[in-house]
Amino acid sequence: MLRSECLSLTRSPSNRWEEFEEQVRIYEKPLYHFAYRLTGDINDAQDLLQEAFLKAYRSYHRFQPGTAFDRWMFQIIYRLFIDNYRKKRRRPFISSLDEPHPHLEQAKTADVPDYSNLPEDSALRQELGRTIQEALMLIPENFRVAVILCDIQGLSYEEISQVLGCSLGTVRSRIHRGRRLLRELLQPYFREERRRKE
């Protein structure tokens, strides 16, 4: 029996609860961010996270102390999202660069914010955030989750492959294809930005 397994068996229920609460307190912010970028909706993200914490608490005896709680939670959140929340999605994904994406084409006519060097102004940052989130929601979930884990959560390819349970090659491909789709979707903004700077 592994040492970590022994440790998990000797944890009393009250210790277990305190430990769990502590882990939640430490990681709730990045986990909430992850859930939000995945669902694209504050309420869905809160609901998803509540559900994920419940699932995690009920199987916390299987969590090995000393391993990364957030990585474990990413797994739970993503699986729950795939099982329950993606059914609620309203817009179809684009899986090819040739497909039109009217949603962002419409938004293009709005005032183009200056965000090439990550704007200081909080209103502009919010605008950029909304635009990127809309683009994220238009790409397939398996690309989206890989890009979010890499760029927003800062995980390595190796860690992402563990969270998603797929090969390094698959992670590499999903991140790349996800970014290229995002580039296509956001190109009107970037083009406008370049034109303004010149």
């Binding site: 769990f20 609460e21 939640v24 709730e28 912010k29 990045p30 909430y32 961010h33 939000y36 970028r37 504050i42 993200a45 809160q46 996270l49 509540q50 559900e51 914490f53 419940l54 608490y57 965000y115 090439s116 990550l118 940052r125 950029l128 955030g129 990127i132 989130q133 890009v147 979010i148 760029d151 927003i152 800062g154 970014r179 290229r180 995002l182 580039r183 956001l186 190109q187 970037f190």
Partner: peptide, 26 residues
């Protein structure tokens, strides 16, 4: 350059403000 811009933009995204009790269901 364009992929770098995408990556930087994603990295710069701010997390939403924490609202509500995430442990409500627990």
């Amino acid at each position: 350059d364009e992929l770098t811009l995408i990556k930087d933009s994603l990295e710069g995204l701010e997390p939403p403000a924490i609202g509500g009790d995430f442990l409500r269901k627990v």
